[in-house]
């Protein structure tokens, strides 16, 4: 999955729905750990449409 950091405001909603608990937000970055399996749930919930899953 890819996050457009210019759209993202680090609100954390993606992290809350991630079944793998794979998304870690810091003040400046969004870290996606290797647990991510591109399930696409984060893409559906992102309020800004900043996430794209292939």
């Amino acid at each position: 999955m890819k996050i457009d950091l210019e759209e993202c405001v680090r609100c954390g909603t993606c992290s809350g729905v991630c079944p793998q608990n794979a998304i870690i937000l810091t003040e400046f970055e969004v870290l996606v750990t290797e647990r991510c399996n591109d399930c696409g749930i984060c893409e559906k919930v992102c309020p800004l449409g900043a996430i794209e899953v292939p």
Partner: peptide
């Protein structure tokens, strides 16, 4: 907050379903 990652790191399920978000 919404992320609720720490509880999951320590074994409590907190993952939200889409219909609950």
């Amino acid at each position: 907050g919404i992320e609720s990652r720490i509880a999951r790191e320590l074994g409590l399920p907190t993952t939200l379903k889409l219909k609950d978000t």
